[in-house]
Write a protein that binds this DNA or RNA. Structure first.
Lengths: 227, 227
DNA sequence: AACAGAATGTCAGCTCATTGTCAGGTTTAA
DNA sequence: TTAAACCTGACAATGAGCTGACATTCTGTT
């Protein structure tokens, strides 16, 4: 049986959705707050329906938390705000779909089914990063360089992914520590150098460019197409 | 609804992009020639995707026409030639982004979304400094002079950036030492002269003007565009 | 116009900060 | 428990930045 989590503070709407989905044979959890939703994450969920605004926080923040934990569960965002930018933002942080309020309950259920099916067939949105000779499949954390799969450690992977996602952009060591290592960890800036070295040795020297006195950025091979 | 213009002579590619973007909720115009594209400029456009080579002219000329009209719409250039990237980005008020063929359609759509967002927040623009023949991309730490990319060292870069950000303003050597070198460092004022020399040699003599007895300022080429 | 003095242009070499590289100890994950 | 990953410190290599010396240009005065 498929398990669905609905995070929605409008109880009427939530219960109505729950009922329809249960008729479809789904097992539905309903949370009216983010706090409650977090406790329900212990369940093995197949789809999450997430409202944009909630009494104790933004749905999008909850989504970010999920993605930070590498959760791959599809998320459908609900929002009353019609301007496109919010939709775009929602999608970029990894929402699989969205709906603007008001909507037909039946349509939402249809979309939930789409997500369930895509999750099964594995054809969901492939999170790929392509930059020159680099290809990154973020779903299974695979890194390819020049057509060959290279085994990278977690930090190496996160580092090169950030650089590949922002080709040409120069990052200072401090900036990289923030973005890749996070604010909780405080390694030396020299740690960055070491990891850059590892990546260079595993691939090619020019994969990462040194901008002396400023930091690192993706090398030109990340810009030049290989064919 | 956001409006996107695609100028691409490969009809298959164009239609495929159109379809994907329309699924994202964008309103897409497709032009296979520059002539057709010009007529579509009457529409209020949010992003333009522009191929490099078109049956009736160069995409880059179309971009120049746009900029001559002070159009601020972001432009994403498509090119198969990797050696032209620096030129595209370095052109005055140049392209906002580029992609080398072949590319993933999804990645292009993602970049269109980035441009839409940046256009709203107005963030990307502030990271570029344009002054006559000078273009500085502070995110990338790239410096372009007269369309050519010039490799500058850290201090050279910081110095010319300050001058380009404040054209017409004359800075004393002491002032430059404070602003560029910072209060922690105490080099001789002659150090400024040396760096000015390096910049002049790497670009052109008249990039920095000497105000005898007072200091330096950006040359007139940095104020009057010479196209 | 010629001159002196000051300001600036120019160059080369030295210094030292930055970065590359590696080994070893510590932590983390299987 | 064991192996891998991570971080750190040490040392080497590199090159940017600084300085001092000398050349050149400019300015104001005679």
């Amino acid at each position: 049986m498929k398990q669905v989590l609905i995070v929605e503070d409008d109880e009427n709407l939530g219960k109505s959705l729950k009922k329809i989905m249960e008729e479809e044979g789904m097992n539905v959890f309903l949370a009216t707050t983010l706090e409650r939703a977090r406790t329900l994450l212990s369940e093995p969920l197949d789809v999450i329906v997430l409202d944009w605004m909630l009494p104790d926080g933004q749905g999008i923040d909850f989504l970010r938390e999920l993605r930070a934990k590498n959760a791959v569960v599809p998320v459908i965002m609900l929002t009353a705000r019609t301007d496109l930018i919010d939709k775009v933002l929602g999608l970029e942080t990894g929402a699989s779909d969205y709906m603007t309020k008001p909507f037909e309950s039946r349509e939402l259920v249809a979309r939930v089914r789409v997500q369930l099916r895509e999750k099964l067939t594995g054809k969901a949105r492939e999170e790929k990063v392509v930059a020159g000779k680099i290809l990154i499949n973020d779903l299974d954390k695979d890194f390819f360089y020049d057509g060959k799969k290279i085994s990278l450690t977690k930090m190496e992977y996160e580092l090169v992914k950030l650089l590949a996602e922002n080709p040409r952009q120069t990052f200072s060591r401090e900036n990289l520590l923030d973005k890749v290592w996070g604010y909780e960890n405080f390694p030396t800036t020299r740690t960055v150098d070491t990891h850059v070295l590892q990546i260079r040795q595993k691939t090619a020297d020019d994969i990462i460019e040194t901008i002396r006195g400023l930091g690192y950025r993706l090398g030109t091979m990340g810009i030049v197409s290989s064919n």
